[in-house]
Amino acid sequence: MLEVKNLVAGYGTIPVLRDVSLTAKAGEILLIGGENGAGKSTLMRAIAGFNKPDSGEILLDGKAIGGVAPEKVAQSGLRLVLDGHRVFPELSVFDNLRMGAAARRGDRAGFNNAVEEIYSVFPILKEKQKLYARDLSGGQQQMLALGQAFIAQPKVLLCDEPSMGLAQALLPPILAFLRRWAQTGTAVVIVEQHLAVTAPYADRAMIIERGQVKFSCLASELDEKLNAPAVAAE
């Protein structure tokens, strides 16, 4: 579904990613971990079209999308949820969800169903649907940002640090939602630092270090791999 081959990218003159490859398959969650500054966000932004790759290929359903403008990428079915629970603060909760429909063509009924589904998963959003998004808590804003992406029904969902700025306890319901979402046939990529919490929800995992893929494995083997003696430093 999403295939990244030998990606080299950065921002401005700063190279961040060196030769990164990955695949995300429909119905699966790929978890990407790594330290701060390892290049995870840059990877997400490069795939979504915000940073132009210096070299390498990004294929969505076999179609090259490297260097395509982010709004076009979104319209062709790949949706990035930016880190830091970014919503439109001066728009109401419902209007924020409406904006999700920009990357989805037509069908009013589908939109209504999707909104109802979001409201049933996150009832708090329904409760606050008339409030400005700026009045939500960080966790609620993250739900809203995901809800907006859900409305678009993308083929591939990239989710950059859904835990950023949230209390840890809020993460499991969000991850559970992503799990169910993936099972409907969406390819989901989650970038997270809280690996222990996230790994049980993921199928496969990949660790990035200093802009390069350190290793990838099944999510269930992640813990074991991380604690392997191969990485004893001092």
């Binding site: 709004e71 990428v73 949706r79 990035l80 970014r86 919503v87 920009a102 907006q148």
Partner: peptide
């Protein structure tokens, strides 16, 4: 609303697929 969204968070608007 989309134009308002654009002025509130340009990157988020592009990520949402708004035809900027």
């Amino acid at each position: 609303l989309a134009i308002s969204a654009l002025s509130q968070d340009f990157d988020a608007a592009r990520a949402a697929g708004l035809p900027v």
